[in-house]
């Protein structure tokens, strides 16, 4: 197991380097030079050259990459082309905002999904299965923004239960600020709840169709210990899906962040694309992709810890 963990950790390094190369390269493949975009058409060639030198665009590409990477590793992502503020600060703020939503939505969505999936799987074709399946199917098929808008209407416009948007003031008491989280978190949790619920149900059904749950009953185990065995067997694929879903949540949802006016990573990414703010774009994608790699690594290790057949 230890050998497996070390090997996986080492394997992650080339992946991360590859990711950084792709991120760096992708942005340079986009047509349109960011400086040209930014400068007024009547700007003199000298000024443009000066600007390019200031942002490092005059150096050969590989130098630009190495410079960018070494700074990025030390947490310096340069300045935003658009407003010359440090990228790291913007990114940090946006990621913290998104992380709050992502973690809460994951906890809510995953636990609801797992509970619904188990209820459905263990009551195959009976009414609890049907009810749970309706809920999970609704979770995956309702459009995000529609749920968000309906919820805003119901809870903020027609009634005055929750604030419609924003994140609240830092001076507000903690509980008041918590209220701002409710609607975006609930909205974001629908899809993870739905997909996890459906996978848990399918996996449980597949496992119950095998012989060993019967054999467990034959050796005298009762419902709960058998449930424990089934859950452990079902865990690896479900963990993989949860890792993926959490990765999506970290990327932030532009729609949900827009509806609730929540300045998270989805928002940042969107704005950076429109402004051709290459340093911001690179930094955001690099950090998100690295999160993805690390998340995958953790899922791999967890899966192998649970299922010995995966330790290869």
């Amino acid at each position: 197991m230890l050998v497996f963990v070390i090997r996986r950790l080492l394997q992650a390094i080339p992946i991360l380097i590859g990711v950084s190369l792709v991120v760096f390269g992708l942005v340079h493949l986009v047509p349109g030079n960011p400086i040209d975009m930014l400068m007024p058409p009547e700007a003199s060639p000298e000024v443009i050259a000066q600007m390019k030198a200031a942002f490092g665009f005059d150096k050969p590409l590989y130098m630009q990459y190495l410079l960018w990477l070494s700074r990025a590793i030390s947490g310096d992502f340069g300045l935003s082309i658009f407003n010359s503020t440090p990228v790291a600060g913007q990114l940090m703020d946006a990621l913290t905002n998104t992380l709050k939503l992502a973690i809460l939505a994951a906890i809510l969505g995953f636990s609801a999904g797992i509970a619904l999936g188990l209820i459905a799987g263990f009551n195959h074709n009976r009414w609890p299965d049907k009810i749970a399946s309706v809920i999970t199917t609704a979770g995956v098929s309702m459009p995000h923004y529609w749920c968000a808008i309906v919820m805003v209407l119901a809870c903020a416009v027609l009634n005055d239960w929750l604030p419609a948007q924003g994140m609240g003031d830092d001076q507000d008491p903690f509980l008041d600020r918590l209220q701002y989280l409710v609607m975006p978190v609930v909205t974001l949790s629908f899809i993870p709840m739905g997909v996890v619920g459906r996978l848990v149900r399918a996996t449980v059904l597949e496992i119950l169709g095998r012989e060993f749950p019967g054999a467990l009953a034959a050796k005298g185990l009762t419902r709960w210990p058998i449930l424990r065995h089934v859950c452990k067997n079902a865990a690896p694929p479900v963990l993989a899906l949860m890792g993926l879903q959490f990765g999506y949540l970290l990327g932030g949802s532009i729609l949900v962040e827009t509806v609730f006016n929540w300045p998270g990573s989805g928002n940042l990414l969107n704005i950076a694309i429109f402004r051709r703010d290459i340093p911001v774009l690179q930094a955001t994608i690099l950090v998100l992709a690295s999160f993805f790699v690390v998340l995958n690594l953790m899922v791999d290790i967890l899966q192998a810890a649970i299922d010995p057949r995966l330790r290869r």
Binding site: A218, K219, T222
Partner: peptide, 24 residues
């Protein structure tokens, strides 16, 4: 019933690979 199963009345299965839990 659970006490009797695996207690006084016990069973061996045809395919041990399928009848044993793979992750324990």
């Amino acid at each position: 019933l659970a006490k009797a199963r695996g207690g006084e009345l016990s069973m061996i299965f045809q395919e041990p690979m399928a009848a044993l839990d793979p992750v324990y």
